[in-house]
Amino acid sequence: MTHDELSATDNGFSAQDIDTSVPHSARLYDWYLGGKDHYAADIAAAQKVLELFPRMKQTARSNREFMHRAARYLSSLGITQFLDIGTGIPTEPNLHQIVQQTTPHARVVYVDNDPIVLRHAQALLRGTPEGHLAYLHADVREPERILAHAQKHLDFTQPVGLSLIALLHFVADDQQPYRIVEKLLEPLVPESHLMLSHGIIENPEIVKQVDAIYRTGGTSVRARTFDEITPFFQGLQVCAPGIVPSTAWRPDNAMTVHDEPAVYAGVARKP
């Protein structure tokens, strides 16, 4: 397998410079999923979220399972290249492990802005000998930088699967989340696909309180209504069954099922 030779200096900081005194969204997600890469501040914040939203662990698992099914679906369509932004702390199976099961030569570029994910980048960069994996420490709010890096590793004359899983509800309205998605899709050729999931507003007061918890770590939460989520797919052809609760997107026997999911998800093709 070929991959980037990563070092802390490649991304302008030391991977050891991780602030463990405040919670981080990626580490909270790791705790929800039963991972091991979080700290006391993350646990305390996650437990506060759980008090407000007792289904958070199930919601996180359902969201992860949507990613697995969507990646398999795109792989079945013949897509062999993926740009996964908001990768998070590695939780097996990762996206490349899903797609390389059936397509060993698949190429995946991972992007995340949490230093702890960089620390685990070598775990992300273990795949098949035939495939190619790369990792970039960057923020989704830097679409031009992300695309410039991705073009070094992916063939943009061929379709790409763009993965934005449980990410855009951390992008505020004044940061132009819809325009970010447009920019990321612009250089992708027809038959490229977007796989996206997003937190939905069920109880505005709970969302406000959850946002306050995440803000202690410098991250805001902007859950959106269904009508606010659908514009992310503007100009694309949404695949069946549409933009639906994560558990309702092509369910299989292995998935976690629970009522009233707080995440909506969809896959769409660029015509």
Rank of each mutant, 00 (worst) to 15 (best):
4 D>Y: 01
8 A>Q: 10
13 F>W: 04
14 S>I: 02
15 A>D: 11
26 A>C: 15
28 L>E: 10
29 Y>N: 11
33 L>Q: 09
33 L>S: 10
34 G>H: 09
41 A>E: 05
42 D>Q: 15
42 D>N: 13
47 Q>I: 08
51 E>W: 06
51 E>L: 15
52 L>E: 06
55 R>Y: 10
55 R>D: 14
57 K>T: 14
63 N>D: 10
64 R>G: 07
66 F>E: 02
68 H>G: 12
70 A>D: 03
75 S>R: 13
77 L>T: 09
77 L>E: 09
80 T>W: 05
81 Q>A: 01
81 Q>L: 00
82 F>L: 00
82 F>D: 06
83 L>F: 01
85 I>P: 01
86 G>R: 06
87 T>G: 03
87 T>I: 02
88 G>C: 11
88 G>E: 06
89 I>R: 03
90 P>N: 00
91 T>I: 03
93 P>F: 13
99 V>S: 05
102 T>D: 15
103 T>H: 05
113 N>W: 05
114 D>F: 09
127 G>E: 02
131 G>P: 00
135 Y>C: 13
136 L>H: 00
139 D>K: 13
142 E>N: 11
148 A>N: 08
149 H>C: 00
152 K>D: 06
159 P>D: 05
162 L>M: 03
163 S>N: 14
165 I>H: 07
170 F>S: 03
174 D>K: 14
174 D>V: 12
175 Q>K: 15
178 Y>M: 09
179 R>W: 04
179 R>A: 15
182 E>L: 10
184 L>I: 02
186 E>A: 15
188 L>Q: 10
189 V>Q: 13
192 S>G: 06
194 L>H: 01
194 L>T: 02
199 G>A: 14
200 I>H: 02
201 I>H: 01
202 E>R: 10
204 P>V: 11
208 K>T: 09
210 V>A: 10
213 I>W: 03
215 R>I: 02
216 T>M: 07
217 G>N: 10
221 V>I: 13
222 R>K: 11
225 T>I: 09
228 E>Y: 08
231 P>Y: 02
235 G>Q: 12
242 G>R: 06
244 V>Y: 03
245 P>W: 08
248 A>N: 12
251 P>W: 12
253 N>I: 14
254 A>Q: 12
255 M>D: 08
256 T>F: 02
256 T>V: 06
258 H>K: 12
258 H>E: 12
261 P>N: 08
262 A>N: 12
262 A>L: 15
265 A>P: 04
270 K>C: 14
270 K>T: 08
271 P>W: 07
